[in-house]
């Protein structure tokens, strides 16, 4: 999965996860601190923590091969179940295949989990049958709490300032007397 608005990116405290225009969502291994916030934030369970290295890995869409070759998984798949290509082309193909199968599409077309996953499944049955989660198009509240709770420091600082102000007032009164 390489979501349009990746939830893992929001959860990462060190900005180690980047979304590229071309599609891939990458983890910068040098920046990763192994906090596993992304592991639990991702609704698809894509980033995997590696206890041996203490860091998180995920599919990087073979960015080092792509302009010239297909990703390794696509190339190696013996039955040709995986296809790789330009976004519009792929959507086109998915629609055609869906019509053939009279099935369902999970990914970029009808429902767009997290703004679209850049990974389209064409399925015979409903997605839930295959264990694909029903994900909304925006990030979950847990992750936004994780991301934005630091703003509570502002009211805390304001409260502290109010103390200082009333204390100062007290001090001034004390001096006047």
């Amino acid at each position: 999965m390489h979501c349009h608005d990746p939830e893992c990116k929001e959860a990462c405290p060190v900005n180690a996860i980047k979304k590229f225009e071309e599609g891939p969502v990458l983890i910068d291994v040098n920046r990763c601190i192994g906090c596993k916030f992304c592991v639990d934030a991702c609704p698809f369970d894509v980033p995997k923590f590696n206890p041996a290295t203490g860091k998180v890995d995920k599919c990087h869409m073979c960015f080092d091969r792509v302009p010239n070759k297909e990703p390794a998984c696509v190339q190696t798949c013996p039955t040709g179940a995986l296809l790789f290509g330009e976004r519009q082309t792929m959507i086109q193909k998915a629609m055609e295949r869906k019509a053939q199968l009279n099935g369902y599409i999970y990914g970029d077309v009808d429902n767009k989990p997290l703004g679209g996953t850049s990974f389209i499944y064409v399925l015979k049955e409903k997605p839930s049958v295959y264990g694909l989660p029903n994900v909304g198009s925006t990030i979950s509240p847990a992750t936004s709490v994780l991301r934005h709770s630091k703003w509570l420091l502002i009211p805390a600082a304001l409260g502290g300032l109010m103390y200082l102000a009333s204390w100062r007032q007290r001090r001034i009164k004390e001096k006047e007397e």
Binding site: A11, C35, A142, V145, L146, S149, L152, P155, A156, G159
Partner: peptide, 22 residues
């Protein structure tokens, strides 16, 4: 029960900062 743990761990720290200061 892991989905919310980090959110609780981080946000609760800030809530504690706020409450503990006031």
């Amino acid at each position: 029960i892991g989905a919310y743990t980090q959110a609780i761990h981080v946000s609760l720290t800030y809530i504690w900062v706020l409450i503990s200061l006031l």
